[in-house]
Amino acid sequence: MTPPTSRTWSRRGSTPVIRVRSRSQRRLSIAALCCYRPGERSRLIYRPKHHGDHKSGGRKSFAWSEYRNLLVAAHQQLGAPIVLVWDNLNVHKDRRMRAFIDAQDWLTVYHLPPYAPDLNPVEGIWSILRRTTQANVAFTDPSHLIRRLRRGLRRLQYRSDIIEGCLTGTGLPLNHTATDSVRPVSFP
């Protein structure tokens, strides 16, 4: 919950120092899809999850079943086949996830090369959130952070120009040759 700082000040000749009491053991994860279809506005579909206190031994990230549920919900919302461009997160390559993907005729998955965040459009979304919603804010508790992130993501959902900018910034081709009904999407 340490906030990214975009601006600060101090007296001339003094280096500004920002003090933070301690790091929290609580964790928040967000899974997001940047969706594109030629001739339609781009979409952002996301799911935040608060994992709670990890001293109790809880999971620190999304489980494969939560990614599966998000893909199913996205497919229902979009009403079209999905071409998914994924990074190499270990959960994305889980054997249960691979079995689920293989069983779906509406889902095609491509994996990005290792260490290629510049090819992932969702990284652009996270960068925008860090520079706008999270910048210069000391969050009081996890629910404050979640509220701010949801507000920022909701604003981005209605800005298809920003989502398209993140998609085109990757340099990946946005036109899929197989069919017009395919929607390439990307996860973090």
Rank of each mutant, 00 (worst) to 15 (best):
V137G: 03
R47I: 04
R43E: 08
E40T: 02
R68F: 08
K55V: 10
C35M: 06
P48G: 12
P38A: 03
K60S: 01
V72Y: 09
H75F: 13
A73H: 13
A63C: 14
P117W: 02
N88R: 15
G52W: 00
H50F: 03
K55H: 00
R43Q: 09
R130V: 09
W126Y: 15
V72K: 07
Y67Q: 09
F100P: 10
A103Y: 05
R27C: 15
R23Y: 13
W86T: 03
G58P: 11
R21H: 15
P16D: 04
D105Q: 10
Y110W: 12
V137M: 14
R19W: 13
Y110D: 08
K60R: 10
F62G: 02
W126C: 14
Q104F: 06
Y46V: 04
T132A: 11
A80R: 06
R11T: 06
R155L: 11
N120S: 00
S42V: 00
K60G: 01
D105G: 07
Y115D: 09
T132G: 14
S65I: 15
T140C: 10
L78F: 12
E40F: 09
R150T: 12
I125V: 15
R68V: 11
E66Y: 01
G13L: 09
A31R: 11
S65F: 15
P121L: 00
R98L: 12
L107I: 07
A135F: 14
L44E: 04
P81R: 12
L71E: 11
L28R: 14
Q157I: 09
R148P: 06
L89C: 03
A63I: 01
S10T: 01
C35R: 04
R21Q: 13
W106R: 07
A63H: 11
R95A: 11
I125A: 13
L44Y: 02
N136D: 15
A32P: 03
D94C: 09
I30H: 14
E40Q: 07
R95V: 07
V83Q: 09
S10Y: 04
L78R: 12
V83Y: 07
I146N: 01
L44W: 07
N136M: 00
H51S: 05
I125L: 14
R131E: 05
V20D: 02
L44T: 00
R131K: 10
W86L: 13
Q25M: 13
H75L: 08
Y110S: 05
R155I: 05
E123C: 04
L44H: 01
A31S: 14
A135G: 12
H51E: 03
D53H: 14
R96G: 04
R26G: 08
A31Q: 11
P113G: 10
L153I: 07
L149M: 07
L145C: 02
P114G: 05
L89E: 06
R95F: 06
I146R: 12
F62E: 01
Y115A: 13
A138P: 00
R151F: 14
A73G: 00
C34S: 08
P121G: 07
R11H: 10
R27V: 08
L84A: 15
D87V: 02
T132N: 15
L33A: 13
P114C: 08
I125P: 07
